[in-house]
Design a protein around this nucleic acid. Structure first.
Lengths: 336, 336
DNA sequence: GTTTTGTGTGCAAACGATTGTATTTTTGTA
DNA sequence: TACAAAAATACAATCGTTTGCACACAAAAC
């Protein structure tokens, strides 16, 4: 209703707006005593700074934009929490936008954030994203860009990723140790580095164990529950696979359901390991072994990188967050 | 880097900023031809409107703030998606803030949103929220307020809630029809209307069936997995309960685990129904019967109410979203 | 041929803060 | 007491839009 401005405060205190502004900013150019006086009256009068005015003048705001494919994914919502943990206490606030895995919406999101003159943009690319002009625009406008999880090397700025390679390696090594002989791999789209890396880890583990890599056991673009269900049928029909490392828990879930429907006993007859450790994974029957990504830590790192970038400090180009393998009963056979 | 302003466009076209501004806004006071000319040049020059300047002048922005307890809850993230579905096409953008179930953070969030001069605030109250001064402030500033799910009647404005009463009623009636005789209820905090209503539905179903309501079978503040686990033990030790309607899926999960650990067979010896239909519920073994809330529709309704409120149209004070009971094997015994 | 009406533009004042520069006041020192 | 140096405050421009009002110039009405 009645909005108090610095001029109102100035008038009441018989000084100018500039002094009030500096007093509120705790600038040493105004005396200790007036600073105190101003701050008290500001509170008394219920002064609420007008962020828009300040940002307009300063040319940048203390909001930071964050674009994620979707927030109802366990991983992403936890990264968001991790980012907030650091950003909020530092006086920034987060504007979250979902791209819904669509390039068009990602482009719009970037545009909107730029128009809002955010201090920086944090992004995990949508599955559709194959062109980066919208992000070049971010760079061109001199707005710090921090990428995480789904990143592209073709852009400057910090990139924070999971240690997908090690995750794939650990998962596969575990299956090997459990005595499985023909370990298949359900991967995602090879367009995404994350999936390529998980696969590389899988292959490395096989080779380390002296097992041969059978291309027939490797299927890409199997990330949904449905895909897992249907592909596991094909797999057991056409190959001698006795275990599968899925690049995601959803396809692992589908695979498990498929195997159950075929009467397989897990893990005795077939071993399964997933990736991401979704909340449901430990609740499945049998509980699903998976690779846990430290989303919270990733969020913290992302936020820290952003703050550094804003303050024009040196930022690490690439940072890799370690993962953790969690063995559960979907694979635990002969493990010694 | 080089930011184009309306004055730049004006200079290039030999007109004034005011004309450009009106042309871009498609104001009929400027001729069709100049409007076209301006819009073309604006695009050519890569003009990005400065939202802050516009908002400063207009006194309000086209951002809408949304405060939720936490986004990593299935229900909340889906409400958010539902809100975005409506708000984004309408030209608004959402600023999401998590309160983390803490009043202090909720207060800060409101403050920050007001300082950013958002066009409206959407909120689902934190569990801690027992004072509403911060929200009175919103009203006082004439900023539209829309509440959902966790609402308080003590504030004006739209309130969109789930039909918790019917949910509780349907869940309990189902257990009755399945032949269970001593149906317990794990509720949440009675401070929340949602839990009081679910309980009321539970009682109504019992009474309708001529079954007596036994206070010993009703336990409040059991919403977590751990609480469900420990309280189910007490329940089977001290009472003759043979089924439980849990006001949340997490406590239902805990209860199921507790019962399994005691060697109970579900649903033959004990029936369980949850509430919320979390993603994991259908994956449990046995799959958990639950009450599904239509989060997406709720989000749509919330957004629609907000837009109406912004446009100063009449808004419904209270709106109730229907729920749907989903029967699964955790309760399906004698159902005819 | 003057007055009315209507178009399309331009002028200039906001909006509320920040900040470089100028001015006043205070302080310290000779 | 005088006078420079330092400290505190005031002045004024600026950020990029929006918008009420004034103005020019046309076409229409009298």
């Amino acid at each position: 209703m009645k909005k108090v401005t610095i001029s109102d405060i100035a008038r009441k205190l018989n000084m100018t707006a500039s002094t009030v502004s500096r007093a509120l900013a705790n600038n040493t150019r105004v005396s200790e005593s007036t600073r105190a006086k101003v701050q008290v009256t500001a509170r008394e009068m219920g002064y609420q700074p007008n962020v828009m005015a300040a940002s307009l003048r300063k040319g940048t705001s203390d909001s930071i934009g964050m674009i994620v494919p979707r927030i109802n994914r366990h991983f992403f919502s936890n990264v968001i929490s991790g980012v907030e943990e650091i950003l909020n206490p530092a006086g920034y606030n987060l504007v979250i936008i979902q791209s819904g895995e669509m390039l068009s919406r990602e482009v719009k999101a970037v545009e909107s954030l730029l128009q809002n003159r955010v201090g920086g943009i944090i992004i995990s690319l949508s599955l559709q994203t194959n062109s980066f002009e919208h992000l070049q625009e971010v760079i061109k406008h001199n707005v710090p860009l921090v990428q995480f999880d789904r990143v592209t090397k073709s852009l400057p700025g910090s990139k924070i990723t999971n240690d997908n390679y090690t995750g794939g390696y650990l998962a596969t090594r575990h299956l090997i140790k459990c005595g499985f002989k023909h370990i298949a791999h359900f991967s995602g789209s090879y367009k995404l580095r994350a999936y390529r890396e998980r696969k590389a880890g899988y292959i490395a583990a096989l080779e380390e164990a002296g097992m041969k890599v059978d291309e027939k056991l490797i299927v890409d673009d199997v990330i949904t529950r449905d895909a897992g269900y249907s592909h596991i049928h094909k797999l057991v029909m056409r190959t001698s696979a006795d275990a599968v490392f899925c690049a995601g828990d959803y396809s692992a879930l589908g695979a498990m359901e498929g195997l159950k429907s075929l009467g397989y006993h897990i893990p005795d007859q077939f071993g399964i390991v997933g990736f991401a450790n979704e909340p449901f994974s430990e609740l499945m029957d049998p509980a699903l072994s998976s690779v846990e990504q430290n989303a919270l830590e990733m969020g913290n790192k992302v936020a820290a990188a952003m703050i550094k970038a804003i303050q024009k400090e040196e930022v690490p180009e690439e940072e890799v967050i370690p993962v953790r393998f969690i063995g559960r009963s979907s694979s635990w056979k002969d493990y010694r």
